[in-house]
């Protein structure tokens, strides 16, 4: 899905998911590792503030990814 959206629309698609090898396999180009499978963009067990803070941090990384020129599959770890 990620690959076909990018190919069809011609716009950067950043995928946020926890299992990085699957993102690599399906052909995502811009990847941000998520927190956990059932909550990739949050950490609810740590309380509402920490949950939101980690969500914000991951989304900032996602925005960094879509503004970065890349030539191959890239994982944005920080």
């Amino acid at each position: 899905m990620v690959r076909e959206i990018e190919a069809t629309a011609g716009i950067p698609v950043v995928q946020i998911a926890t299992i990085v090898p699957i993102m690599l396999t399906v052909g995502a180009n811009r990847m941000v590792p998520g927190v956990a499978i059932p909550h990739p963009v949050g950490d609810p067990a740590e309380g509402p503030e920490a949950d939101k803070a980690v969500r914000r941090e991951i989304l900032e990384r996602a925005f960094k990814a879509i503004q970065t020129k890349i030539t191959e599959q890239t994982i944005f770890k920080s």
Binding site: E6, A9, L59
Partner: peptide, 26 residues
């Protein structure tokens, strides 16, 4: 099917002038 969803979604986003996508997966 996933590829088809991607193509169809991509076409709609293109038509509506969307500039980037954040896609979350579990």
């Amino acid at each position: 099917n996933a590829e088809r969803f991607g193509r169809e979604i991509g076409e709609q986003l293109k038509k509506d002038g969307v500039d980037a996508v954040i896609l979350t997966s579990t």
